[in-house]
Design a protein around this nucleic acid. Structure first.
Length: 282
DNA sequence: AACCGGGACAACCGCCACGTC
DNA sequence: GGACGTGGCGGTTGTCCCGGT
C-alpha cells in the first residue's frame, strides 16, 4: 500500500503557471485566505496540484515578497546564517523578510557558492577544506569544536535560531582572539555547558558571528514549543561589542508584529551579547 | 542565422513531521 | 498506538534566456 498521492496527477497541469492561473489563485486567496491547499485548486477552478498552488503562492505571488536582487547585506547575512544553520533554508528565509526559502536556496546555489569559492571558502564548511570544524549541539545548548575531517555538523533541535539567539555565545572568530573573553564570560555567567571553542577561519576572511549567551540576570525566555518562535525581546538588554557589529533583529526584521523594538543600540549596562554578526572583511 | 553551453530560477518530487481520528 | 491527511522542507529537475562561436 503506497501513500495516497496529493492530487490526481492525470488531471492536473504542470509546468509554468499562466497569467490566468496566477490571477485565479490570487483572487481566490484574497477572498478565502491561505490554507486548505488540497481543496483549493478545485475551489479556485485550477487544474493544479494543491502543493503546486501553495508553492506558487509562497514563492511567487505573495504580496509581501521582495523581488529583485539581493543586497550585499543580505548576501553576508545568508552566508553567516548558513555557516551556523546549514541548509535550513526556511529558517534562513525567516530572517530575511520578503525572501523565500526557494529563492535563497537558488541564490545560494547559483551565486553565493561561487562567491565563496572565489574567496577561497568552502561553502559546505565555511572554511578551508581541512579547516577546524564546528559542532553545534543545541539540545544541550552547548557548542564544542570538533577537529575532524568532516564538514560541520549542525544539529538543530529544537530550533537552531532559538539556540542561536537565546542560548549560546557563538563566536565564529579569529582563532584565539577575544573569543576567549566571550567564552570565559559565557561559562562563568551561564549555568550551561561551557563553550569549548568555535573557530572557523577561512583564508583571511573574518567570519565572526556572535550570538549572546544567557546572563545570570536574564532568565531563559520561554520558547513556544509549537512555533519555536523567539519570545519578545523587550526585556533583553544587549549591546554591540564592536562598533561594526550588526544587530540581526534590527536590520533584518526578526522582530515583527507586536514585538517591541530591539534596544541593542541603546545604552545598556549589561554585557550581554545577543544576536549580531560582524560583517565579513573582504 | 543557427547552434551550443552555461547560468538563473521556477517548479516538481519525495520525504518527513505533526495533527486528527 | 496506528493509519491517514495535510502542510512544509530540501534536493533536484526542467525550462528559459543570453552570450559566445
Amino acid at each position: 500500500m503506497g501513500r495516497t498521492p496529493c492530487c490526481e496527477k492525470e488531471h492536473t497541469n504542470k509546468g509554468a503557471w499562466t497569467k490566468e492561473e496566477d490571477e485565479r489563485l490570487i483572487s481566490y486567496i484574497k477572498r478565502h485566505g491561505e490554507g486548505s491547499w488540497r481543496s483549493l485548486p478545485r475551489a479556485a477552478g485550477l487544474l493544479r496540484c494543491g502543493k503546486s498552488c501553495r508553492l506558487r503562492w509562497i514563492n511567487y505571488l505573495r504580496p509581501d515578497l521582495k523581488r529583485g536582487n539581493f543586497t550585499e547585506e543580505e548576501d553576508e547575512l545568508i552566508i553567516s546564517l548558513h555557516s551556523v544553520l546549514g541548509n535550513k533554508w526556511s529558517v534562513i528565509a525567516s530572517r530575511l523578510p520578503g525572501r523565500t526559502d526557494n529563492e535563497i536556496k537558488n541564490y545560494w546555489n547559483t551565486h553565493i557558492k561561487r562567491k565563496l569559492y572565489r574567496r577561497g571558502i568552502d561553502p559546505l564548511t565555511h572554511g578551508p577544506p581541512a579547516a577546524t570544524t564546528t559542532r553545534v549541539i543545541s539540545g544541550e545548548n552547548f557548542i564544542k569544536s570538533s577537529k575532524t575531517e568532516s564538514p560541520p555538523v549542525i544539529e538543530t533541535e529544537p530550533d537552531p535560531w532559538n539556540m542561536i539567539s537565546l542560548a549560546g555565545d557563538v563566536l565564529v572568530n579569529k582563532a584565539g582572539n577575544d573569543s576567549a573573553d566571550h567564552e570565559s564570560n559565557a561559562s562563568s555567567n551561564s549555568g550551561m555547558t561551557t563553550m569549548e571553542e568555535l573557530v572557523v577561519q577561512p583564508h583571511g576572511i573574518n567570519l565572526e558571528l556572535s550570538i549572546g549567551l544567557p546572563q545570570e540576570d536574564r532568565q531563559p525566555p520561554n520558547i513556544n514549543s509549537k512555533t519555536h518562535s523567539p519570545p519578545p525581546y523587550a526585556n533583553h538588554k544587549m549591546q554591540l561589542k564592536h562598533p561594526e557589529d550588526v544587530c540581526l533583529c534590527c536590520h533584518f526584521g526578526s522582530l515583527s508584529n507586536n514585538r517591541q523594538m530591539c534596544i541593542c543600540s541603546s545604552s545598556v549596562a549589561s554585557d550581554s551579547l545577543f544576536r549580531f554578526y560582524l560583517p565579513f572583511c573582504s
